[in-house]
Design a protein around this nucleic acid. Structure first.
Lengths: 248, 248
DNA sequence: CGTACTGTTGATGCAATTCAAGGTTTGTGG
DNA sequence: CCACAAACCTTGAATTGCATCAACAGTACG
């Protein structure tokens, strides 16, 4: 039951993973983390453009991002790609496949990434008699649901400037949660991909980035982003007047 | 363990509920349905406009729609309502609140509705030693995730006509799943609400409905909808050369 | 060290919003 | 059952924000 950690296990273990508070192990008792570790497979790093899985492929595992970044996308009837999300370290991918036999979307590495694979059958068996893990899974699903809702929200009747402001602030938050700077970061995806996600064409992305820069809200250098006036950004992103933090 | 069903229990029980294959009891062994029934609270019907719960309120229960229809919505920073979904009999509401202590959105009856309330703490305790229920919950969450994704998809770069066609076809499907006609049905929400959900202004809704009717795709009489040419509807909704994106 | 991908800029067109006003349905109390 | 208010829905005209088209400049990389 209690496994003796070898040196290499220790370096890679969920116990010591910097991301454990975001990922599956959060709130699990030490014993249960050990059990989880028993079924997690750490695969060799994937490179930019590699598929973790493809749409239509049989669902076997869910995946947790350890380093790097991943996008998930579906192919629409006319052959166009629709990007449904970007996934940073600590996030779990593939949960939308549990209900059917097959993955509804593809997952593609945006840059070199290391990934943990968790075979779902084994995870299910383990959680059958591990309430803490079960509760954690429900909470993660609920979190994903919230994230999707907020994306809906984002796409519904907002201007290009607002969409970009919202998404930049959201990335800022997500980087901060991972111990990185909230004010200076590097977007892992192309403008094309970000535009696709936001429902905007690349030309509009370019012009909108420029407008935010001209207004002194952000600094842009390729994929490097600096949030210059986060108050004004928040005001632009969420509603007409005043940054939302202004009210008690 | 095995409960003797009284007459009134029998009429209202999950065992006999017409919706059990859509709702929580699906795929559960008889015994486990019995256990589930032990914690389900059937409340007196709510009327149009009544809240099941309000955004910000403490999360205690999830809710299943038995009859009628419900919308969920959030209030945006500027005071506007944003409708995040419409819920028909057999669907479960409130799953987005599991991760936090509070409901992120409000649930409001669109018409007289009867609702089953399931206290979440009890559901969690029960599922701790009821794998079938646990698996069912995960599958329902996964289904919700898919539904949200398809809403994102819908809002991302599609014309008003396409959005309306997609949403009408989706309602058609959902009514059919519930044993109602797929070709003639009554939308439970106002055009205002449907427009809000689709990210369209009421004027646009009105014009778009009319255009679909003029093209002979649907028949419209207030909230009564008839799908006249479902092939053409599908072509418009998911099809190749609708209006916007026609490339090689 | 060129080929393909990604990003930028300007000119033009169009779909959906906005503004304005009138019509219709729904619900409520007398 | 009617009267009346409050929603809800429709129609037309003017406006605008984003897409499209076209051309070109970086940049990444085999």
């Amino acid at each position: 039951m209690t496994r003796i950690a070898t040196l290499s296990e220790s370096r890679d273990s969920c116990h010591n993973c910097r991301l454990r508070t975001l990922c599956l192990p959060d709130n699990l008792p030490k014993d249960d983390i050990g059990k989880l570790e028993g079924i997690v497979q750490r695969r060799k790093p994937v490179s930019r453009g590699d598929y973790l899985f493809q749409a239509g492929q049989r669902f076997n595992s869910i995946y947790a991002v350890r380093t790097g970044a991943v996008k998930t996308s579906t192919l629409m009837a006319n052959g166009d790609e629709h990007i449904s999300g970007f996934h940073l370290p600590g996030e779990v991918i593939g949960l939308d496949a549990i209900v059917s036999r097959d993955h509804p979307s593809s997952a593609i590495a945006l840059e070199t990434a290391s990934i943990c694979e968790i075979p779902y059958a084994e995870l299910e068996t383990l959680s059958d008699h591990t309430p803490s893990l079960q509760h954690r899974l429900m909470r993660i699903m609920s979190r994903e649901l919230l994230a999707e809702q907020s994306t809906n929200h984002l796409l519904s009747r907002r201007s290009a400037e607002q969409r970009l402001a919202v998404v930049l602030l959201k990335f800022s938050e997500r980087f901060a949660e991972r111990g990185l700077s909230a004010l200076r970061f590097r977007l892992p995806m192309s403008r094309l991909d970000l535009g696709n996600y936001l429902g905007l064409v690349p030309e509009t992305m370019s012009r909108t980035f420029r407008r935010l820069e001209e207004q002194g809200l952000v600094g842009i250098a390729g994929k490097e982003i600096e949030i210059v006036d986060s108050g004004a950004m928040r005001a632009l992103a969420f509603g007409a007047e005043g940054s939302q933090v202004a009210r008690a």
